[in-house]
Simulated assay, not measured.
Amino acid sequence: MSRVPGWLLRHLITVEPYLGDSAYGPQYGPPAVAVPALVSAAVRQVRGADGREVVSSTTVIAAPGLDCPPGSRLTLPDGRTTTAITTSAHAAPGLPVPACVEVSCE
């Protein structure tokens, strides 16, 4: 299975994985700094983890293995901070399609 080519991942993002809620609000893991990704600012409708339809304003494509569960905090190349709505791992063993992780953000 091939991976998404590194030369396509032109942006660098920071990901703070969502760990859960506490008495003081959401808890995040240590930030993964300088994660290569492809960031696309396109508005589209997605279905969240709870089944509701929500609007996503940014889509991030990264190499397989990205730790970014829904609710994670991402810092985009322009400095904007956003929250992951859904995370999808794409793989097509045996097909000439690269494996990647797609994150839809608020």
Rank of each mutant, 00 (worst) to 15 (best):
P5N: 09
V55S: 11
P70L: 11
V4H: 01
L19H: 04
R47T: 15
A34M: 09
H11S: 10
W7A: 01
H90T: 14
R3D: 14
D50P: 03
A37D: 01
E16P: 00
A84I: 08
Y18G: 02
G29W: 05
V46P: 07
T87W: 02
G79W: 11
M1A: 12
G71S: 07
T86Y: 11
P30N: 09
A91R: 15
A49R: 08
A92C: 09
E16K: 13
V103Y: 03
L8G: 09
R52M: 02
T81W: 00
R10A: 10
P30K: 05
I85T: 12
R10W: 00
P26G: 13
P96L: 13
T82L: 13
A91G: 10
C105R: 05
R10I: 14
T81F: 00
V55G: 10
C100H: 15
D21C: 00
G48K: 02
P36Q: 04
V60E: 01
S72R: 13
R80L: 12
P31G: 13
R44M: 09
P17Y: 06
P96M: 09
G20F: 00
G94W: 06
V101P: 01
G6H: 05
P64K: 07
R44V: 06
D21S: 12
D21P: 00
D78N: 15
V55H: 08
T82D: 06
S72M: 14
P36K: 04
G79P: 11
R47W: 10
H90K: 06
V54N: 03
R10V: 14
T86S: 09
L74F: 13
G48M: 05
A63N: 02
T87M: 12
Y28F: 15
G65I: 08
L66P: 02
V15M: 04
P64C: 09
P17Q: 12
S104T: 13
V46G: 06
D21K: 12
R80M: 07
V60K: 00
L66H: 01
G48L: 02
Y18R: 07
P98Q: 03
P69K: 12
V33H: 12
R10N: 04
M1W: 03
V33W: 04
V15I: 11
Q45N: 10
L95V: 08
A84F: 10
Q27A: 14
R80Y: 00
A41D: 12
D78V: 12
P36M: 06
T83N: 05
T86C: 06
V43C: 04
Y24N: 07
G79Y: 13
P17A: 11
C100Y: 14
C100W: 13
A89P: 01
V43G: 12
P93M: 08
L38W: 05
V4R: 10
C68M: 13
E16L: 06
L74N: 04
C105L: 14
G25T: 08
R52E: 11
G48W: 08
E106W: 02
S104W: 05
G20D: 03
T75Q: 13
G48V: 00
A41W: 14
G79H: 11
H90N: 14
V55Q: 13
T58S: 00
A63W: 05
A91V: 12
G48T: 02
P98F: 07
A49M: 03
S72W: 15
